[in-house]
Amino acid sequence: MEDDTRGQSAAASTQSFFSRQFEGEDKWELWAKVGLVMLALQLVAWLMVFLKLGVASVYAHALGISLLGTLTLPVVLWGLVKTLFNPPALRRSRTVGFGALIVVGVLGNVPLIAPPLSTQNWVSEHAYRLPFDGEWTTLAGGPSRATNYHATTATFRWGYDFALMREGRRFTGTGARLEEHHCFGQPVLASAPGKVVTAVDFEADNKPGEPTATAVLGNHVVIEVGPGEYLFFSHLRQNAVPVKKGEQVERGQKIGECGNSGRSVEPHVHVHLQNSLKFPFSESLPLRFSSYEADAKPVALGMPEGTADSERVAGQSVKHVD
């Protein structure tokens, strides 16, 4: 009997505690209102992305969604301060506010899907070759997140990273020096003929593992292959770009050397195709290479596949064949 009484007393105390937490008028605090507005804006931004509105969708994905995700943390901290110093702590409005902010944070910071683009069914009239001679390993490439860590960005959606492998390694020694990386200084070739519209070669090469926070592309060359068809080669070696703006280049012509400039951790060749010269607010174009071997199998036209993990080498070994 005494145990029953104690149990009832404990239950009553618990109920009383929660009742006190919800006592009083449940006023909507400003931070919670801001959280709901952010959720509404986040949903609108994602709707714009799925509607595939071209550049407007790129801005929504690259700026709107990510900016809202970044703003989540300070608003959550604002809400926590209000919750701690303005009892009662448990309010329905606060629960809804924190729930909204969690959704905004996940949608804005976690790369859940590859963004749908209006260019996804685009097919080039030009034949693109691999941007190097010899056998290289595909670090990133292909249409899906499973093989391409670029796939969650609108501008790099179908971009590629390649590196040289020897005996299963990208470098000799510890890889702490650029010269130890097998691909550093190797020729980078034009994948298609066209006009050079941008040529930059003054950016310093980074020490391996220490990418610069600015100058994302580093030293780079952009070739206008055709109307609305711009081919980007990035992270090239400093003072190793032999072509100039306005120059016509041929397919297979040397346009630079593999480097580690810009936002690059290790030397590699980066190439992608986009529908305007504006970076990073353009839509990526599906880039398919012709006449190559992938893991010793001939491919007439295709997308070399890499890996979703930039730290792990598990992509296809590819080489151009004439």
Rank of each mutant, 00 (worst) to 15 (best):
M1A: 11
D4E: 11
R6F: 04
R6S: 06
R6G: 00
Q8K: 09
Q8N: 10
S9H: 04
A11M: 08
A12F: 10
T14V: 11
Q15K: 02
F17H: 05
F17Q: 02
F22R: 08
L30N: 02
V34R: 02
V37G: 07
L39G: 04
A40V: 09
Q42G: 04
L43I: 15
A45R: 00
V49P: 00
V49E: 00
L51G: 00
K52S: 01
G54L: 01
A60Q: 02
I65F: 01
T72E: 03
P74D: 05
P74W: 08
W78A: 10
L80C: 12
K82N: 12
T83Q: 13
L84G: 00
P87T: 06
R91V: 08
R92A: 10
G99A: 08
L101Q: 10
G105F: 08
V106D: 07
G108H: 04
V110E: 01
P111K: 10
A114D: 07
L117Y: 12
T119F: 05
W122M: 06
R129A: 14
R129F: 03
F132I: 04
F132W: 08
G134N: 10
W136Y: 15
T138H: 09
Y149N: 03
H150N: 04
F156R: 15
F156A: 13
Y160W: 14
A163W: 07
M165D: 11
R166M: 13
G168Q: 06
R169W: 03
G173Y: 14
R177A: 15
L178G: 06
H181D: 10
F184D: 10
L189F: 13
P193T: 06
V196A: 10
V197K: 01
A199M: 02
A199V: 04
V200K: 06
D201M: 00
E210V: 09
V216F: 12
N219K: 05
H220F: 13
E224Y: 06
E224V: 01
G226C: 03
P227M: 02
Y230P: 01
F232W: 15
S234I: 07
R237A: 15
R237D: 03
N239W: 08
A240G: 00
V241T: 13
V243H: 07
K244H: 13
G246C: 04
Q248Y: 07
V249F: 08
R251S: 12
K254W: 00
K254C: 03
C258N: 11
G259C: 05
G259K: 04
S261G: 03
V265F: 07
V265K: 04
V269R: 01
H270C: 11
H272R: 01
Q274S: 13
N275R: 12
S282A: 15
S284F: 05
L285N: 12
L287H: 11
L287V: 14
R288W: 13
F289E: 08
F289Y: 15
S290Q: 13
S290V: 11
A296R: 14
P298G: 02
L301N: 14
L301V: 13
M303V: 09
P304S: 13
E305V: 05
D309C: 09
R312C: 05
V313N: 12
G315Q: 07
Q316C: 04
K319Q: 15
V321E: 13
V321L: 13
